[in-house]
Design a protein around this nucleic acid. Structure first.
Length: 190
DNA sequence: AAAAGGCTCAACCGCAAGGTA
DNA sequence: ATACCTTGCGGTTGAGCCTTT
């Protein structure tokens, strides 16, 4: 296969977003919704970005209802508990913390919580990166032995099911409501 | 006042999953 | 059955801000 990275196309802009780009993206999504396909969105919206970049910008920064910064102690606590259950599956963790994005939580974990826990002598066991390592392993297997597609798809569904199971198991109750208020630490670099 | 080093976080990269022709 | 495409995820990077000297 050997797919090229999507941003390698000439003429596509990289790096920090300008307020004008933010505006174009927000406006387009307001008019057409998110589900129209990220790949084609930049062109339609008049942006010189790749779809991936647009999606990231929207999901992590522009999407309405996002809280930025100002993590409360309850949220810290919740993140720590979820991490101990789920490991570094930030999207799952984010799904349980309203208004927070996976990127936000990941950053917060790496820059604040990890230090905090280390200082307390509670450094969490680093989970084997479920995401990449297990995926890679399945792929290696698949390549090594010419597995049937049926088996491959079984692996896929198995993994999906496991995710579901973990989600089921981590019934972190009640806390969500306590997290409703919006933080105001927004540094708004742009 | 300014240089150096540390810290934060937005954005990028590579890869796997899932879809479809 | 498979080749290729898009989407979504986790890990990592680096620009720019902040703090210390």
């Amino acid at each position: 296969m050997g797919r090229k990275p999507c941003c390698s196309k000439e003429g596509l802009k990289k790096g920090a977003w300008t307020s004008k780009e933010d505006m174009l993206l927000t406006q387009y999504i307001k008019e057409h919704g998110e589900a129209t396909g990220w790949r084609s969105l930049p062109k339609k919206a008049g942006l010189l970005r790749c779809g991936k970049s647009c999606r990231l910008r929207w999901v992590n920064y522009l999407k309405p209802g996002l809280k930025r910064g100002n993590f409360k102690p309850e949220e810290d606590d919740l993140i720590i508990r979820l991490y101990s259950l789920l490991g570094s599956r930030w999207s799952l963790i984010a799904g349980r913390i309203p208004g927070r994005t996976d990127n936000d939580i990941k950053n917060y974990w790496n820059t604040h919580l990890l230090k905090k826990l280390k200082a307390q002598g509670n450094e969490p066991r680093r989970h084997k990166s479920l995401a990449k390592h297990t995926r890679r392993r399945t792929r290696e297997k698949a390549n090594a032995s010419s597995q049937s597609t049926k088996q491959k798809s079984n692996n896929k569904t198995k993994k999906r099911k496991n995710v579901g199971k973990i989600e089921e198991n981590c019934n972190i109750e009640g806390k969500d409501q306590a997290l409703a208020k919006t933080g105001t630490r927004n540094k708004a670099r742009y």
